[in-house]
Design a protein around this nucleic acid. Structure first.
Lengths: 96, 96
DNA sequence: TGGTCTTGTCACCGAACGGTTACATTTCGA
DNA sequence: TCGAAATGTAACCGTTCGGTGACAAGACCA
């Protein structure tokens, strides 16, 4: 499943927690956080800390994969072709 | 690539940013954050906000995928078999 | 050498964090 | 229907966040 927003993440966590038969207290304890935090994250809190989130996902037996989109458009890159060329040049020079 | 820690994430972001030929200021501006924040995240800051991180990844043309590990052991679940059964029962009852 | 670009660090600030505790609400089985 | 369990809120608190602006160190090229 693709995670695009904090809301996506919260929904996934809630679903997965339920699937494992845990209540919020269980998960909080096993992930080393508080129930309050679990509640907020499941509701899609965008300012939750990435560290706690990673610990929580691990507790849930879930893994995060990151990958470059095949669907072009980096959502902000202006000149993909030129940029790529520059990068290659830069990258080659970076490692002496 | 699997993301297990904030350090993993920071390394990936830095690498991807470089590959796109952006400097930290470029990325900060396009992702709507500050250069200071980019520096910290690339260094593996575990308390960075998930919302900003998601925006940054989007800017980099990268997507996050989440999935249940096939490698058993939920890192905390005590009785997998029983738990699964209870879940199935609960799940079935959830949708009337 | 000098100048530019990039990155890392610092101090400052208001805002929000996450933990704790307690109480209200909802859910659901006996 | 009743009562316990699960979930959602609230207030309080010390800590840390992220943004700003400025400066230093390092790399690089003209």
């Amino acid at each position: 499943m693709k995670i695009r927003t904090a809301t996506d993440l919260g929904a996934f966590i809630r679903e997965r927690r339920a699937k494992l038969g845990m209540d919020q207290s269980d998960l909080a304890e096993k992930a080393g956080t508080s129930r309050k935090w679990i509640v907020e994250v499941e509701q899609g809190k965008p300012r939750a800390e990435i560290g706690l989130i990673l610990r929580t996902l691990k507790t849930l037996g879930v893994s995060l994969d990151i990958a470059v989109d095949r669907t072009r458009k980096t959502s902000a890159a202006s000149e993909p072709r030129n940029v790529d060329i520059n990068n290659i040049l830069n990258s080659l020079k970076k490692r002496p």
